[in-house]
Amino acid sequence: MKSFNAMSQQVTDLSERVQTSIEGPPRPLASEALETWTDVRRKTKVNPKKITTNYNRITDFITFAGDKPLDKYTFLEFQRWSNLLARVPKNMSVVPHLKGKTHQQAADHNDRLKIPRPTMTTKTIETNYFSPLKHFFRQMAAEHRFPSPFGDADVRMDGRSSVKRRPFKVEQLNIWFTHAAQEGRADMIWLPLLGAITGTRIAELIFLQGRDIYQMENTFTGARYWVIDLRSELIAEDGGSEERKTKNPTSKRIIALHDLFTEVGFIDYAKSRRAADWLFRAAFYHGKGRVGDPARAASKRMNRMLKDVGIHKPMERMFHSTRHTAKDIMRLARVDDRTNDVQTWHAFRTVSRGYGAKDLEELPTEIEVLTALPLPEGLDLGTYLDRHSRKKTRQE
């Protein structure tokens, strides 16, 4: 009997050795590998916010498929995950009755509604969920020597089609500007004009301080022009410094201000602020309480204003559409595409565009072009001009 047991154990051991020689040593659980991978990434220059977001999205998959050794996930598990995400409501994390629910629970809840909420787009599924997942599994496959589950087949993604952003028409800008110029708060007055003419993101505009608006001089011609400078850190309330909030490190740039901002009184307003003052202080408060996310709150206020004047269209025409508007204004004025991208900061599409100066400070001639570019025919800034004229008359 002992001999039989010993032989049986030898067979088992041999089988395990053969299996190990074929498959390699046991791989760590996905959750364990994710912790290690994330710790290593935190020591790199990858944006910390991106690292956290990627961690959360990969954790979502592990919650769905189960926490297994890295090499035990199959292609169909990723396809099922994609199928599920196509049923999940967009922005589920900010919908009150969906907070704390799994993606499966959120999708099932949405399916039961008489009027379901809009679901995730294919782009969201690809960019926010599968891009970090593929990145993680491909690197772990190289680290632990197993075939990546993304190596031989493509996961099909059947999310909702993305709605294309539309620039504002001149007639719509005139309606919006006429309304905005009569507002009482600085952010409500100036954000529409700044967004549409410069193409600057709302999160970049909200965190502007007095010292960020100043004049630069072309040392060759002596010409002077006003700019926004997003390259420096912010002055904290205690007098120290804090990191400026931009979409990514390369978004920290010089932005040329068109001469119209002097004509309508924005420059006078900016000059009235001290170096550490927020240009749009009211945007940081709701009543007496501090706003948790000033940029998000400002975006909601801007979109409410667009609804009030009748030119808002969900996902298609909203404040972010001002970036499309500014791009079109520059194209119509025949501004060089590379200068256009440096002003609004969009990634260069070709290798050749990536060569040369990366900042408008190094391109004073281009700043002069941007400060004086022709505005669209029919654009009406009369209400802004009248407002500034009345203010100057009162001061005299």
Rank of each mutant, 00 (worst) to 15 (best):
R253C: 08
R290V: 06
D328I: 05
I175E: 02
P69T: 10
E35I: 14
W81G: 01
L234C: 09
I228S: 07
E243F: 09
A282F: 00
P26Q: 12
T246Y: 03
D212T: 10
R211Y: 08
L360T: 07
D238R: 12
T36D: 13
N218W: 02
W81H: 10
E316W: 04
D308E: 14
S3T: 13
D359Q: 11
T383W: 07
I62E: 06
E126W: 01
D212C: 08
L379G: 08
A276Q: 15
I206P: 01
N56C: 07
A30C: 15
M92F: 06
R27T: 15
R349C: 09
N54G: 04
R301Q: 08
K247W: 07
G356E: 10
N128L: 04
A283M: 04
H109C: 02
T53V: 09
K327M: 12
A223K: 13
M157A: 03
F150P: 08
T121S: 15
D229L: 06
L70E: 10
N303V: 00
A297D: 10
F348I: 11
A153M: 12
V155N: 13
F168P: 02
S3K: 07
E362A: 15
E204W: 01
V155E: 03
N174K: 12
A65D: 12
Q19E: 13
S82W: 08
S21Y: 10
I62F: 05
D212K: 00
R304Y: 11
E263F: 00
Y384Q: 03
R338Q: 09
R112S: 10
I51Q: 05
A270H: 04
T365I: 10
L363N: 01
A276W: 14
K169F: 13
A298L: 00
F130K: 00
Q182I: 02
D71L: 02
M1P: 07
T221Q: 11
T121W: 08
R145D: 02
T350A: 13
T250D: 12
M92A: 07
R253W: 01
Q395L: 04
D293W: 03
P249A: 14
F261I: 01
S8T: 10
K49M: 00
T121N: 04
W37D: 12
Y214I: 00
T344V: 05
R160Q: 15
A326T: 00
I367Q: 00
W81C: 00
D259Q: 11
T52I: 04
